[in-house]
Computed example of a mutant assay.
Amino acid sequence: MRHGNLFVISGPSGAGKGTLVARLLQEVPDAWVSRSVTTRAPRGGEVDGVHYQFASDEEFQNLVDHEGLLEWATYAGNRYGTPRATVEEHMAHGEQVVLEIDVQGAFQVRDKMPAAHLVFVEPPSLEVLEERLRGRGTETDEVIAKRMDAAAVELSHKMEYDMRLVNDNLDEATAELVRYVNEQAEEARG
């Protein structure tokens, strides 16, 4: 059995984090993605425990007060966080736990679990990133401008990560991420 590890994947919106994580799950059988706990109400089709762990404000605050979250933040009036117990349980079973969270959350996790492996996914350029965001066809110019501003801030932290991965070629980026996860799992075991 391999040793359980924690991998935190961050990067700007449009860098391809979600696609890389989905491919990682297909390539690494013992990889598991953590589900966030949130105070927001479920949207149509969302199932508690599948898409998110839905919690009341009181339940969420109890987790905060008792160190039950590795990281948490507020977005659009709702709180989101990573449950510590679930992550630790999966790691104890030898799984490679993956969190797909923002830079702020990544540094909160590192403070609580210094052995976490932080991976920053970046686009080949800001121009490519903007093309990807526009190519989605789901956001207004104003939203894209905000995402581009946020990307500049996130990119300024990339050197604080253990691994930086330029997602220029999806197959190569996937192979590089899979190799890194497997190396860490084997190294920890040895």
Score class of each variant (00 low, 15 high):
Glu58Tyr: 04
Leu118Asp: 02
Ala73Lys: 12
Glu100Ala: 09
His51Pro: 01
Val98Arg: 00
Met163Ser: 13
Gln184Arg: 15
Arg132Glu: 05
Glu160Gly: 04
Ser156Arg: 00
Gln104Glu: 12
Lys146Asn: 15
Ala31His: 01
Glu71His: 11
Glu95Phe: 11
Arg147Leu: 11
Asp149Val: 13
Arg43Val: 07
Arg84Ser: 13
Val178Asn: 02
Gly49Leu: 05
Leu129His: 05
Glu122Ser: 13
Tyr80Asp: 07
Asp57His: 13
Gly49Ser: 03
Val21His: 01
Leu70His: 04
Asp65Met: 05
Lys112Ile: 04
Leu155Met: 11
Leu177Ser: 02
Thr39Trp: 10
Leu6Met: 12
Gly18Glu: 10
Asn5His: 13
Glu139Pro: 03
Val121Cys: 04
Thr86Arg: 14
Thr140Arg: 08
Met1Ile: 13
Gly14Tyr: 07
Gly137Leu: 02
Ala175Met: 01
Gly18Tyr: 06
Lys146Leu: 14
Gly105Trp: 00
Glu130Tyr: 03
Pro42His: 06
Glu88Arg: 09
Pro124Lys: 08
Leu126Ser: 08
Pro83Gln: 12
Asp102Val: 08
Asp65Trp: 03
Tyr52Arg: 00
Asp111Trp: 07
Val50Thr: 11
Gly45Thr: 04
Gly4Gln: 10
Gly137Asp: 05
Arg134Asp: 06
Pro83Tyr: 03
Asn5Cys: 15
Leu155Pro: 00
Asn5Trp: 12
Ala150Cys: 03
Leu20Asn: 04
Ala22Tyr: 01
Gln26Glu: 14
Val181Ile: 06
Ala188Glu: 06
Trp32Ile: 06
Ala73Asn: 11
Asp48Ile: 04
Phe54Tyr: 10
Ala73Glu: 11
Gly190Leu: 12
Arg136Ser: 03
